Structure formats: C-alpha cells, structure tokens
Simulated scan of single mutants.
Amino acid sequence: MTAYAEFPQGLRIERVVTAGTFELDGGSWEVENNVWLIGNDAEVVVIDPAHDPEAILAAVGERELLLVVCTHGHNDHINAAVEVAAEKDAEIALHPKDGMLWQEEYGADLRWDVDLADQGGITVADLELTVLHTPGHSPGAVCLHASDIDVVFTGDTLFNGGPGATGRKYSDRDLIVRSIRRKLLDLSDDTRVLTGHGEETTIEAERAGSRGWDEDETAE
C-alpha cells in the first residue's frame, strides 16, 4: 500500500477507503469511510474499521496490530472491528459512553476490550496518540491527537467544512460545537485534520470558518 503520509523513523499513515451502509434510527445510507492506519513496518494501530475487514487486514499485512480504535460507536465505524481484531488477536478500544451504539451492532453479550478516556494515551511506533473526548456527534465520540506530527484523527466530529452531523439520536449540535472549540481549535494552525469521511483539512482552515457554525447547517 502507498503511504498517505510519511514521517521520520519509518512512521507512516495509510488510508483505506471502504464503502458500505450506515444504519441508524431505522434509516440506511450508502457511505464511504476513511479507515486510518498509523505505525511503521513492525506495528500498527487501526482507526475506525469500517465495512471491509479483508481490505483492512490486507493493509495491516504481517505487522503486529496493537489496537483497533473506534472514534465512536456508529455502525459504519465499528462494523469490521470484531473481525479485524480477532484475525490479529488484537483488542478493541471505544469510549464507554457509546456502549449503547456498540450494542446495536453487536448485541449485549459482546463487549469491546479497552475503555477510552479523555487525555488517555495510545502508543504506536514511539508515537503518542492523545485521546480527546469530543461528544456531540455521539456521547462517546473521541479524536486522537498526535502532537509530534501535527495530526488529529477526528472521526465524525470535525470535517472539511465544519462539525459532523447531529440530526440523529444521541447527538447534540451545541455540544459538538463546544467540543470542537474547547478541544480542537486550540491545536496548532497547521495540524492536519484526518476525517472519518471525505478529504482532510487543517485546524487553521476550520477555525477560520467556525464563526458561523451556530447558524450553519451541520456538515454531512
């Protein structure tokens, strides 16, 4: 696989774009998701395993899969998590406030392994990813900030163009805007925002557009 972004000491980010169905509130929508991998030739973390476990596992290859991280519990961000983790004997991490969404996909008898917590740390290839709890799109939504390389993985909290959607159950428009302003917009201007869908942006670009968020419609 061609690296999406490369950094010193062999660290790299890869993106696998997968397609499938997002289902919630009795509706279904065809979507494309960004599945992110970050690591080196020896080890890797997978972020938001969606729709296509075979493609994700092919990208992991022979590397050790340290952790499968779900930025939130919507089915289009977790529906390949169990299969990917089981194949590589890895653990799955999710914020516990999204447990009800996890259960909609997997039932009450199957639980994720690791509870994500605000300011918690995940280490891969000598890089620290800091967990930022950013509720609003869902109660347990998180972002992962890699300050050493000026990258933040935002799931569906922040997109190129503004906040993620809040028109479905468990979501809150005021809360997502507050989360972004308090946790993300203070990051450095050139921080790359790697999103759950669509193309990347920067903190500088999204801060510049944030004045109208209270009045604008949510991004899809």
Rank of each mutant, 00 (worst) to 15 (best):
E87N: 09
K97H: 14
W112V: 13
D148G: 12
E87R: 15
F159R: 08
M100H: 14
L66Q: 13
E104Q: 15
L66V: 14
T130D: 05
T130I: 14
Q103W: 06
A59R: 12
G107S: 00
V68E: 01
N79R: 02
V124G: 03
V152H: 07
I122G: 03
D115E: 14
V82N: 08
L116T: 12
D156M: 03
E62L: 08
L65W: 00
T154V: 06
F153T: 07
G155L: 04
I92R: 07
Q119T: 12
L65H: 00
L65M: 01
E83M: 04
A146L: 15
A90E: 12
F153Q: 10
T71C: 00
T123F: 08
P96D: 05
Q119G: 03
S138L: 07
H74M: 12
G61A: 04
G136A: 01
T154E: 11
L67N: 07
I149G: 01
H133F: 05
L132K: 15
A93C: 00
L66G: 06
E91D: 14
H95R: 07
E62C: 03
P135G: 04
K88Q: 08
S147M: 08
V68T: 10
C143R: 04
D156I: 07
V84P: 09
L129T: 11
V114N: 02
T123E: 15
R111Q: 13
G107Q: 05
T154W: 02
E104W: 11
L132I: 09
K97F: 12
D126M: 05
V69T: 13
Y106M: 08
L65S: 01
A125C: 09
P139N: 10
G120L: 01
C70K: 02
E104S: 06
T134N: 02
E91M: 13
L116E: 11
T134V: 14
I78T: 14
D113P: 02
I149P: 05
D126G: 08
P135K: 02
E62W: 01
D109C: 04
W102A: 07
F153C: 11
E128Q: 15
V114L: 04
T130W: 13
V142K: 08
A85Q: 09
A85N: 10
G61Q: 04
T134H: 06
A93W: 08
E62Y: 03
L67S: 05
A117D: 10
H77S: 02
V152S: 06
V152W: 07
P135N: 04
A81V: 03
L144S: 02
L158V: 10
P96Q: 01
D150T: 07
H95V: 10
V114Q: 04
P96T: 00
A58H: 14
T130L: 12
N75P: 06
A93T: 04
G99Y: 12
